[in-house]
Design a protein around this nucleic acid. Structure first.
Lengths: 187, 187
DNA sequence: GTCTATAAAGCGATAGAC
DNA sequence: GTCTATCGCTTTATAGAC
């Protein structure tokens, strides 16, 4: 399944031909159609469901139910690792940009919507007003996608790392009242 | 040529088949191969060159040589109009995300690099330090691409308009020393 | 320049042996 | 489950009439 996902990710839906899929997964057409009776569209749908599952467990659920600051920090870590610091791109982003979107509109919409919603939820619980939380969440998710496009277009993964670092800093929640340990000489 | 560009933009390189190109442009295969002896790859290259030309004239040159504030304001206006407030997406972004990038790596890289460079130039001349100018320019171009992905993924062009508005505000150059007219009671 | 006809290869999908 | 063989169809590209 990860192999299958990688074919669609790198080649796009139209570019991922059955011959290339068999080549990279090692599975013949017979096996592929055994697992995915609906053919190529079935395979892509399964990959999208698999990705959604991963994001639910690693990103959305922690944001929705966990301690906000920790969940957001985890989100940035997982995101950087998932996209391999910009070397890997977002399959949903790839599908979203061309006519493939119309085939999988619901799944694509849900991916972005739930990410924004989950992040906004964490920001609200972290002390931001609802409108500000939503705007910040939108900015962060949008920034990740933009960073992926730019990193790939310029073939420079440093762009991604830099952008994610900046986004993470700008997303910082308001300070809590807790006193932090101070070194001597600090104000 | 605009029609040709739109086919690649909406369908991607792999999805833009010759039959769909003939269908949308009204040109038969004979005519297409007469104008583009190199076939499909030749057509895409011509479209990329055409887009580059447009951006040079409407975005890059004003940023590189014009009055910084006016050029940046013009950039936001032209950008919003060009992408039809998010209804249209970026052909170069589409090509950048899948394996098509490797076919047109130089043109794609140049598109993003020159946009960032031109914007950074305007920001420097507007009073920003070189490092800050470059970081801000990167953020802006990245934000535009992200806004396009998200607007299309969520099928909600308001996202694009909102994001571009925010990016434009955050890109604001430092105030010049000029006194602004003050209303009575202002500090 | 633009058309039709056609070539050669590749496409997604199916059938049936094993 | 996995393989090979094969079906229609579409693809890019070419040839040649007009």
């Amino acid at each position: 399944m990860p192999l299958l996902a990688e074919v669609f990710r790198e080649l796009g839906y139209e570019g991922a031909t059955l011959s290339r899929i068999t080549e990279r997964t090692g599975l013949g057409k017979g096996s592929l159609y055994h697992f995915f009776p609906g053919g190529k569209e079935d395979m892509a749908a399964a990959v999208l469901a698999d990705i959604d599952d991963w994001f639910v467990r690693h990103i959305y659920q922690p944001l929705e139910t966990g301690e906000p600051r920790a969940a957001i920090a985890k989100m940035w870590d997982e995101t950087a690792a998932y996209f391999r610091s910009g070397r890997r791109i977002c399959l949903i982003g790839v599908f979203a940009l061309d006519a493939t979107r119309d085939k999988f509109a619901a799944a694509i919409r849900l991916y972005f919507a739930r990410w924004i919603d989950a992040l906004a939820s964490a920001l609200r619980r972290g002390g931001l007003l609802p409108a500000a939380a939503r705007a910040q969440a939108e900015t962060a998710v949008l920034g990740i996608q933009g960073a992926l496009v730019l990193a790939r277009g310029l073939n420079d993964e440093a762009i991604f790392t830099r952008a994610v670092g900046r986004l993470a800093r700008e997303l910082a929640l308001p300070e809590r009242g807790k006193a932090r340990p101070l070194k001597k000489g600090a104000p």
